[in-house]
Design a protein around this nucleic acid. Structure first.
Lengths: 348, 348
DNA sequence: CTGAAAGCGCTTACAG
DNA sequence: CTGAAAGCGCTTACAG
């Protein structure tokens, strides 16, 4: 029913081969013929059928963006911000973006020859097996931390150092009892954050205790506030807390408020990643900045390189992070600090 | 290189027609043959080629989700929340979800026979012309307010009534000078909000003045805080402000803080839509709730009906809204209200 | 129940 | 510069 190159060929009195050539920008057709073909195509409102083209060329023109953990993840500004970068990156190409949020959809998407490559948001170990991922034989680049032995290029924040900076910032403000609110340890990101936290505490000569580590099982922070509130209540010695994400940090603030703690007077909290909304809430969130949009863009450009058969030199691209002091951090309430002015002299 | 039904047919010693029939669940193949085919398909790791299937069946199996106004829109929780509903809806079908954020991508996506239907997030008039949209001849359902004369089914919040409730709530708290922070009037949503605001002010016998209407030109609220702050500074008589979205409301709070106004003591603010994060920030945002996820789901199910050729009875599905009092509203500072207890007795 | 054949809309050696 | 033809991987009347 839709017009096809056949129609154009008939009207123009040429072969479909010629039509195909001019419409897909290939050389080898006389200027006049080409012009005539273009005009006719325009007139009869020709729309190429990407599916057919894909069949013939063995490509799809689609790239998949798969984010595990269900669609509620959309509320997590980390994802939406990186996604913004990915979207911008893809926009500059001729690819279309296919998204999937559930594992069912992912399987279907990836097993069905529907995409040429995939941007994979850091899956947890149990969600997508490395074996399966390898078996589908698609170019994949992962965003965020993933398995060490992953064969896929990866672009991620330097999360371990991010937490390190967060802890140091708190330390320099005078905090001694510093806790961490972390995601589930099945995520490499959480593991890295934990490592950064632990090693920095030790390095600074602060008490490291598993007591002060709170791991929430789900990324659904909204639901986790009550347990966080309980945790904070039990650990009143903690005057500062670092979080593995800004989103989590917002939950901590909420939880603190619930039990009557003031931020930052009673509790300093610092996030990680510095999503756009963090500078926007009141008080604005102290965090460790990283170029999230840049991460998304970089991931896309690496994928594009792979799609063009280029050799990928750097399999791991790590974005550096930088602490930003805003409204949710201050000197601890219980101790008067002699000289709170020294802002940043990496004490070691 | 990938195995196809031809390979299966050869191995099984049957025709590709039979293979096709069993693999796509069609009747008319003997149990034994069917079983053999299935087993072989499994063994050699057959993956159907959706593109080829699409070519043959004249469908794509894809639905497009198009959101205008660039990808920064992802930071707007309204979109991500509705999107969550859409994603959940699509998950339950066999369709894949193609997303596009820029107008370039949209054109390509829709003009290229890549999708069977589209979920369109309320475009502004100037972005996507109705003519063009109609010309592509795809089933479309729009989410959010759009042109009155739009021929496409639409599902949206009752935004006009939402603002009405917000104004009334403020009025009942004792506010007399109520302003509105609105989006650009090129969006139907903003128009509706303005109408709701104006008519309610008049109805309540309050002063309506264009002075108290602040329209921000862009949806990029982050960038708009400074102008909002200036506006608030110039209009100190305003003790309460209603916003056309929660996202905007967060900007107002930020702006108020910037100029030293306390929320809600000095300024009450109420949002609209009640996105998940609104209950999460501190103080939590008073807003007018609407089932955003439900809106996304409903839009998807309507589209599915259209795809199956069903007649759509209700072309406009309007979700009702309900005011929720939280932490950003209180009695106005300047006036002592005799009886602030009467919470909700729709005064008219 | 089963298969031969045409067709979906495009691309691309191959030959001229 | 141009066309005939085969092919991409699947589906579906049609005939048996």
């Amino acid at each position: 029913m839709n017009v096809s190159i056949k129609d154009i060929a008939r009207i123009a009195g040429v072969s479909t081969a010629s039509v195909s050539r001019v419409l897909s920008g290939k050389p080898g057709v006389g200027d006049e013929t080409a012009e005539r073909i273009r005009k006719i195509a325009e007139e009869i409102g020709y729309r190429p059928n990407l599916g057919a083209r894909g069949l013939a060329k063995r490509t799809t023109g689609n790239i998949a963006v798969v984010v595990p953990r269900g669609s509620f993840i959309l509320n997590n500004p980390f994802f939406s911000t990186v996604l913004e970068g990915v979207a911008k990156g893809i926009d500059q190409t001729d690819y279309n973006m296919l998204m999937s949020f559930t594992s069912l959809q992912q399987k279907r998407l990836l097993e069905t020859q529907s995409v040429d490559g995939v941007i994979l948001f850091s899956p947890r170990n149990e969600e997508l097996s490395l074996e399966w991922l390898k078996s589908i034989g698609l170019p994949i680049v992962v965003v965020g931390s993933y398995l060490e032995e992953s064969p896929f290029p990866c672009v991620r924040p330097d999360d371990e150092d991010g937490i390190r900076q967060a802890v140091k910032a708190l330390y320099q403000l005078g905090h001694q009892n510093i806790g961490i609110i972390n995601g589930p340890m099945s995520s490499m990101h959480s593991v890295r954050c934990f490592n950064g936290y632990k090693s920095t505490m030790l390095e600074l000569g602060l008490d490291f205790s598993h007591e002060n580590v709170f791991e929430i099982g789900e990324f659904d922070v909204l639901k986790a506030t009550k347990v966080m509130a309980a945790f904070l209540k039990e650990h009143r010695k903690i005057t500062g807390v670092v979080c593995s994400s800004d989103y989590l940090a917002m939950g901590v603030i909420k939880a603190a408020t619930m039990i009557g703690l003031k931020v930052p007077e009673d509790l300093s909290v610092v996030g990680a990643d510095d999503v756009p909304i963090s500078d926007f809430i009141t008080p604005s969130l102290s965090s460790v900045h990283v170029d999230l949009v840049g991460i998304g863009r970089k991931a896309t450009s690496i994928l594009m390189d792979m799609l063009q058969g280029k050799q990928i030199r750097k399999r791991d691209v790590v974005f550096k992070m930088e602490y930003i002091n805003r409204g949710t951090t201050s000197v601890p309430n219980h101790h008067l600090i002699p000289d709170p002015k020294h802002e940043k002299d990496h004490g070691d």
